Every structure is written in structure tokens, then in C-alpha cells.
Simulated assay, not measured.
Amino acid sequence: MDLDAYVAERRGEWNRLEALTRRRKLRPDEADELVLLYQRAATHLSVVRSRSPDPVLVAGLSRLVLAARATITGTRKFSWTPVARFFTTTLPGELYRTRWWWITVGVLFMVAATAMVQYVAGHPEVAGVFMSDTEMNDLVSKDFVSYYSEYQAQNFAARVWTNNAWLTAQCLASGVLIVPVFYLLVQNLLNLGVIGGVMVGSGAGDTFLTYLAPHGFLELTCVFVGAGVGLRIGWAWIAPGPHRTRAQALGERARSGMLVALGLALALFVSGLLEAYLTPSPLPAAVRIAIGVLVWLGFLAYALLLGHFAHHRQGSADLDEDLGEAAVPTR
């Protein structure tokens, strides 16, 4: 192909296209002309690339085609509407749809934790398997309370947030394998049961509840949500349901899990602030606990009440039908 002749023949169209892309407003006939010239320039770029890939010409035509496409499609401006929709509809709807998973996990965990605290409190030798007598005495006399004021509040909040977010992320990510979720929950159950049992058995149960309740309700609920949603993801490839493959079911549940993960990151940030600023504060114990319970109830109302309306209003937060895979009958 004679590149010079090809360029000379079409240079006028390219110049006209460039002039149209620079205009702020176009008449209807100019808009039609812009679309036509854009289509031709895209064809010209394809021809040049395949037959005579001159780098300078390819770069110039690519820039022209991209500029014309941007003029035709327009630039998307930032809008708060999708952000508002996420927090008012998408996130609460997903929390509501997964409610039975994380509520079940939470109830079973708390029943097991309560039973373990009572058992360890009544059998001190069990705690001795995990801690020495000196460690138990230090825990009751100073370590449990001083833990919440050992660091500066802002540093402690960041540390707690990242630790809890990492634990919740592990529950979500490992849910596809199911077993690791139970391993993580058992680890936390042992930690809570042993420490709580030592505190209660030593007569410091009120201190244990006073320093755990202000942040613990919300913090543990977030962990339960992460574990429940993770197990829901894992169950998708075991029982995908009718009219979809295991890959489709797993993809749908994983996308749902990523939405919940974003919301949990924010909820755990609030929990971290409560643990760093409210739990060790000089406020009366009843006030601290009341604030923590109110925040927790607010989260439950957001997930269950607002989530109920969001679920029935939106239906599903998964990909639109035209963007997803076609459903096929499966056995």
C-alpha cells in the first residue's frame, strides 16, 4: 500500500474530524457528520495498523479516534447518586438477603461462647492449659483493662480496625473452602471463652462485660456477617440451585460478598472508634454500654429494617441481566 497516497487522500476527512471534536456545541448535521467521520477514521486506523504500521501515523490516528469517541459519548461526571444508592439500597439489601446465614452463625457462636465462659469459670484447671497462674493474675488485675489504654486512641483505633477487618476479610475470602471459616471462628471462640472464663471465675465478670460491651456487640456482629456471607459463598458451589451452573452461582455469591465487605469495612471502623475512645473513657459504665448497644441496634435496623425495604425495592444487586451469563438448565 502506498502510505503517502493513502494519507493524502484521507487527510481532509481527518482534519475535518479533528475540527469537529474541538467544538463545544454541534448542530444536528455536524453531529451526524462527526459520527460518520469517526467510523471512517476507525476503519482507516485498522487498515494502517494491519498493512503499514507506521508508529507516528498510528499514534496520531489513535489519538484522533479516541478524541472523537469521547466527543460522541461524552465524559461521565462524578455523581453522588451511585454512592447514595449503595448505602441506601444495595448494601442493606445484601445484608438482608444474607441475614439467616450471619444470624445463625451469631447465635451459635454466642451460645457456645457463653457455655465456654461458664465452664472455664467453674473449672480453673481448663484455663491453666492456655495460661499460667501469673498470666491469669496479671490479666485480672491489670492487663485486661490496660489493654484498651495502652496506646494512643487514634493509633489503637487504627490497629483494632485493621485487625478486625483482616479477620473479617479472611472469613469472607476463605468461605469458598468452608472449613477455614470454622477454624477462624473456633480460634476467636477459644480466645473469648478462656479470657471471659478467667475474668468471671476471678470475680471480675462485671469488668469483663463493662469493657467488652461498648464495642463488642458491633464488632462481633461484623465478624458474624463476614463468616455467614463467606459460608454462603462456599455453599453456592455445593448447591448452586436450578437453572445455573456452579460457576454462575459462585460468581453471584462472590459479587454479593464483595459488596458486603465494603460495608463491613465502614462498620468495623465505627467499632474501632468505639473501642479506642468509648470503652476506656471515664463515662459511667451504664452510659458506655448504652451507647454501644444503641450503635449496634442502629446497625441491625439498617441491615434488617432498611434492608427489608431495599430488598423488595431492588430485588437483586447482581449484574443486570444483559451483562450476566445466560441461564441454562442444570441437573
Rank of each mutant, 00 (worst) to 15 (best):
T104C: 02
S46Q: 04
A42C: 05
L26M: 02
R51W: 07
L34M: 05
L108M: 04
S46N: 02
V56L: 14
V35E: 14
T98I: 11
R97W: 00
T88I: 07
L95I: 05
E9V: 00
G12H: 07
R16V: 11
L20W: 06
T88Q: 05
P28Y: 01
T98K: 11
Q39A: 10
V120L: 04
R69H: 14
R76S: 10
R22Y: 07
V105H: 12
Y6K: 10
F78A: 15
W100Q: 10
L64K: 00
L45W: 07
T43K: 13
L66R: 15
A70S: 12
L37G: 14
R16E: 15
L36F: 06
R63V: 00
F86S: 03
V120H: 03
A41H: 05
V107G: 04
A5M: 09
V107N: 05
G93Q: 01
T81K: 12
A112V: 00
E94H: 10
Q39K: 10
G12M: 04
G106L: 02
Q39D: 06
D2V: 01
V83N: 00
A121S: 09
V56A: 14
V58Y: 01
F78K: 04
S62D: 02
R27S: 06
R27K: 14
W101A: 13
A113C: 05
A59H: 03
R23E: 10
T71H: 14
W101K: 08
Q39N: 08
S46D: 02
E13W: 07
T71L: 13
V35W: 11
W102E: 07
V35N: 12
G74C: 10
A115T: 01
A41C: 12
V120C: 06
E33M: 07
D54M: 10
V65C: 04
W14P: 01
V58W: 00
S50L: 11
K25R: 15
E94K: 08
T73Q: 15
